[in-house]
């Protein structure tokens, strides 16, 4: 997977891995919008450039195997990557694709990734990632997950 430098359009390969305990020192609310320490009991993954240790995006999840589902609890980019002045594109798309791959690996065609954004930003996720709407819950299932993997995962 890769991200794109907004200014130069240069591509950079990324890694998405579990966060380590020392990362919590760097993950401040100012930089990453939420109190990530409250998520310590859940799986948290970070997105970094393969050639740089700075965390560009974070996601915490809860696996719900009895519903063949992974629920995204928190997701955020770093403050530098928010809004029109952002440094890189595709951070959120890569994080969603990573979680979708976890769901496919566990549940194959039954896979589901869910999240519950505020109504003001739900439309963005529906439009950009093709999410299904069920009440206030948005979800990625088949075939959306396959489309996302095709678009974001270059197999590296």
């Amino acid at each position: 997977m890769y991200i794109v430098d907004v200014k130069t359009q240069e591509h950079f390969d990324v890694d998405i891995t579990s966060i380590e305990s020392q990362d919590f020192k760097k993950i401040t609310k100012k930089e990453y919008f939420f109190n990530w320490k409250l998520e310590k009991n859940y799986e948290i993954n970070k997105l970094i450039r393969t050639d740089d240790s700075k965390i560009l995006g974070l996601v915490s999840i809860e696996r719900i195997p009895e519903e063949w589902r992974i629920h995204i609890r928190l997701l955020s980019v770093s403050v530098d990557n928010k809004g029109k002045q952002k440094s890189y594109e595709r951070i959120v798309g890569n994080l969603l694709t990573f979680i979708s791959k976890l769901a496919i690996k566990e549940f194959a065609e039954l896979a589901c990734v869910s999240l519950k954004p505020k109504s003001t930003i739900a439309q963005h996720y529906i439009k950009t990632y093709g999410m299904n709407v069920t009440g206030a819950t948005l979800s990625l299932e088949l075939p959306e997950i396959l489309n996302l993997v095709k678009k974001y995962d270059n197999g590296k």
Binding site: R73, L74, V77, K82, I91, K116, T120, Y125
Partner: peptide, 12 residues
């Protein structure tokens, strides 16, 4: 956090 791509808090 009004920008849609900053992230999501969807904790139950």
């Amino acid at each position: 956090l009004s920008s849609p791509e900053f992230g999501v808090d969807s904790r139950y």
